[in-house]
Design a protein around this nucleic acid. Structure first.
Lengths: 358, 358
DNA sequence: TCGCTGCGTGTAATCGTTTGCCGAGCAGTT
DNA sequence: AACTGCTCGGCAAACGATTACACGCAGCGA
């Protein structure tokens, strides 16, 4: 076994071997300018023989672009973000670009460092789902001043960057109208205390729709903790210990809802007969728990594609920003009752609620 | 809103502002060589005022290192790999290094491209869980020839790179001894058909241990498909439709096992009374399904730490390789019966089975 | 006073590509 | 023959940081 690492082969060596200049090698390989067929063949052969693989660091320095976009998510452990990442990576790969992924661990300080590091690394753009509604703001704005940036799903207040996500109000309308149709007349809401746009909009949507539909709720039925199963379990335990039981528990994400399901099962509360439960995100597991979870589906591929597209336009347009809210759809499963009417799947048609260049 | 992107600030501008040379700025900021207190203050002030954030591309080109390690996993959607990624990122972050993550989507060709791209990108090292036992080999070997590389969990044949993972034979011994103790006398094995080291070693371990313990099995009880719940479901359906039922189903990963659980529930087969089921990996959901899954825990943090450590030594030692097998442990939950003896948690002590420098 | 050491700083080369500019060669036009 | 236009290829200057080397200056012992 050789003790020494192979010496990296440079464009100059390829040029030597092919008997041309480095400029010609560069052009032959990248195709930025035409090269005679004869020379191209010699260059390709030399490159292959030497195992030349280029140095994208040097290339990036010269071209001032890395063909890489950075992505920051609050928690890669959350299946919703995991699949969002998969979608984004898929879209990028189709364009021959790479994804640089970071996990902020729900910590604005970690998030700030990741953003700085991405700027220093000269990524071509940043896709971020900020972990906090206010504490993330300054770092996000600073990053947006330096390079194209689009916020995904969540967004921070007071910034003028692109954003793409779903219409949370619409989602809550779908959920509560469905519950209303199944006969629910009172509902609790379990969410995260972390202030961020998703959390706030979902809560606001819940309040507005319960009021509109005449579904009763109470201050002690609004439970705010974190996006996790553990919180779903303890919040539900708290509800079940309360004086009065709601007809339904609306959860701000699937993890919470799955926790709620488990506590109900453990306490012998039948779902959906004694208690209806809804989630949000439609993660893979939502269909695999028992009973399967009624939840809000976010069009993840569409969101990812839109984010990448916005990034591209921001590269050229810079400065103006667009907010794109896509329509969510409701996926009804066994954790809620069937409405009297036969329709089992109330799937809202996709629509573009607002899209504006300012 | 300004239409123009802020011009990136360079070290030269900081130098101008602080009234020193670029060399001094570099030294003041990196601390590679002492600088007078007075000058350091001026430089730091200038850098802060201008919002200087460095250009790690240029730095990387000159220093020939990026402080970034690349990681390639077969599927980021698989919770086991997700949490492995989290662990690795955690370890790296403690050292101020970054993780460049890629998903090979179980495709050796995609994997090859990602590896090439990482080499071109000059990552300092690569951590990979190869997606295929033989088809990944050439790309992995080629990458290992260029830069330090350590294989994680799975590994390909015929390469001389570092590897760290768990001892699959030991894991199967724990599983089958436990099943034997609970009274199981026959067992099926459901795994992936993808040839890779984990798959093969787990199957070999299953065969050896069933034979040793006198647990009966049959050729048509060895079902090979893929690491997914869907496969777990259909394989189990196939088993249940068979002429004879085994006492237990040993699954090569938790996703398969969860699929198996669901099919049993759907078919009215009681777990663990009529059928015992075990998984492998101890993903978060293993504890959350019903009944909770008995499974093999891999010490993920330990694996991650070891991988990063090996990478560091490979940077200096280059050429010699080490194989490190950590001890797995069995987590017994409700999907298997209690053995007569009272011990509920048979947790193997961690040991280092083999560690050799060649 | 003369070296000598050591510290702090500046100058300029360097990392490996890409690309603006130029010139050689060739064909077609006047 | 002179000129124009076009294509292909080379020269050398970037890109923005790091760092080998050199230099000036102070302190210090001889």
């Amino acid at each position: 076994m050789e003790g020494n690492r192979l010496q990296r082969v440079t464009i100059a060596q390829v040029a030597d071997r092919a008997g041309v200049s480095t400029a010609t090698v560069s052009r032959a390989l990248s195709g930025t300018r035409p090269v005679s067929e004869e020379v191209r063949r010699r260059v390709l052969a030399a490159a292959r023989e030497l195992g030349y693989s280029g140095n994208s660091i040097a290339s990036a320095l010269r071209r001032n672009r890395t063909d890489t976009v950075g992505m920051v998510v609050p928690s890669i452990g959350n299946p919703f973000f995991t699949s969002l990442v998969e979608s984004v990576e898929h879209v990028l790969q189709a364009e021959g670009r790479q994804l640089f992924l970071c996990d902020s661990r729900q910590d604005p300080e970690v998030e700030r460092q990741h953003l700085r590091s991405m700027i220093a690394r000269q990524v071509d753009g940043i896709i971020i789902s900020p972990c906090h509604g206010s504490e993330s703001a300054s770092a996000v704005q600073a990053a947006a001043d330096a390079i194209p940036l689009v916020q995904l799903d969540r967004h921070v207040a007071d910034t003028s960057t692109d954003w793409v996500g779903v219409d949370d109000h619409e989602a809550m309308r779908l959920v509560l109208e469905h519950l209303h149709a199944t006969g629910a007349r009172s509902a609790a809401f379990v969410s995260s205390a972390m202030t961020n746009s998703s959390t706030e909009l979902r809560l606001a949507g819940f309040r507005r729709q319960t009021e509109r539909l005449g579904i009763r709720t109470r201050p002690d039925w609004i439970l705010l903790g974190e996006y996790s199963m553990a919180w779903g379990r303890s919040a539900t335990a708290e509800l079940l210990d309360g004086a009065e039981l709601p007809d339904a528990i609306v959860c701000a994400d699937d993890l919470i809802a799955i926790g709620a399901l488990r506590t109900c099962r453990a306490r012998g509360v039948a779902v959906p007969d004694d208690m209806q439960i809804t989630g949000y995100d439609d993660i893979d597991f939502a269909d695999l728990v028992d009973p399967a979870l009624t939840t809000v589906n976010q069009p993840r591929d569409r969101i990812a594609a839109e984010a990448v597209r916005l990034l591209a336009t921001a590269e050229t347009w810079g400065g103006t920003s667009a907010h794109t809210a896509l329509a969510p759809s409701l996926v009804t499963r066994q954790s809620t009752a069937s409405p009297e009417r036969s329709a089992r799947y109330l799937t809202g048609a996709e629509h573009q609620e607002s899209s504006s260049r300012s």
